[in-house]
Computed example of a mutant assay.
Amino acid sequence: MSAVVLLLLLPPLVSAQTYHWGPCQTPRVQPGFDLQKYLGRWYEIEKLPASFERGKCIEANYAIRKDGTIRVLNSQFYKDKVRVAEGTAVIPDLREPSKLGVSFSYFTPYSPYWILTTDYNQLAVVYSCTDILRLFHVDYAWILGRSRFLPPDTVMFAKKLLISEGVDLFRMKATDQMGCKDD
């Protein structure tokens, strides 16, 4: 029965995400991560495919809420309008502050949101992986910038880092940031 369910789940995953056989990778994360410096607006420069991100002008804004959780406000321009999704991020283990969990619904568990590296001022490289019964996993990876465009050598540095951590970038593509309106 579970094999049938797995086969039914695969087609949507294949078209909209990056999946691989076996369990998730465990890449190294940013040592000494400082959440306060990370807060604010980040623009998506490149990413592995994600079914929830199909538009252009994609950005994320992070802020601390009064209850101590992190407000995640993602926006994108898709089908002629700006679409916004608000989520919550937490740091499950304060000993590893660069390993956040993010959820966009009260009904879904927190997904990994690991900051592999950031200089806080220009670049952040983020990785997430969802393990499905340890049979296969779905990878997500983002190269983020504090501006809509990063120098090519900075993007190449980020890609080399992801590759060195075992992340397959075959399906990674640039996010369209042309003609976007800034607040």
Rank of each mutant, 00 (worst) to 15 (best):
S15V: 15
W21C: 02
G55D: 03
R83T: 10
Q76P: 07
G87R: 07
R28W: 00
Y78K: 04
I70H: 04
Q30M: 15
A60L: 04
D67M: 07
V84L: 11
L10P: 05
E53V: 14
L8M: 15
Q25V: 05
F77P: 01
Q17W: 14
S15A: 15
R83Y: 02
H20R: 14
G87Q: 03
W21K: 10
S75R: 15
N61E: 13
F104M: 07
K47W: 03
K47P: 09
L73G: 01
T18Q: 15
L10D: 00
R83I: 12
E59Q: 14
P11G: 14
P49C: 08
P12K: 09
L94G: 06
Y62N: 07
E44V: 11
K56D: 05
I70P: 01
D34Y: 09
L9K: 13
P49N: 08
F104N: 04
P92T: 00
R41F: 04
I70A: 04
F104H: 05
S103D: 01
L48H: 06
A50M: 14
P23K: 08
L7W: 15
L9Y: 10
T69C: 05
Y78T: 00
T88G: 01
A50S: 14
L9H: 07
F77A: 01
E86I: 04
S105G: 05
Q30V: 06
D93M: 04
V72D: 14
P31K: 06
F77I: 00
K37Y: 11
R83V: 11
Y19W: 15
A60D: 13
K81R: 09
A63Y: 05
P31F: 05
V72A: 11
P97E: 09
E46Y: 08
D34E: 15
S75V: 01
Y43H: 15
A85N: 10
E59T: 04
Y43C: 04
F77G: 05
I58T: 15
P49F: 08
P27T: 05
A85T: 05
K56Q: 10
V90N: 01
R54C: 06
Y62D: 08
A85W: 09
L9M: 15
P27F: 10
E96G: 00
G87C: 04
E86V: 11
A16C: 13
A16Q: 15
V82M: 11
L13M: 13
S98P: 09
L73T: 13
E96K: 13
F77T: 00
K47A: 11
T88D: 06
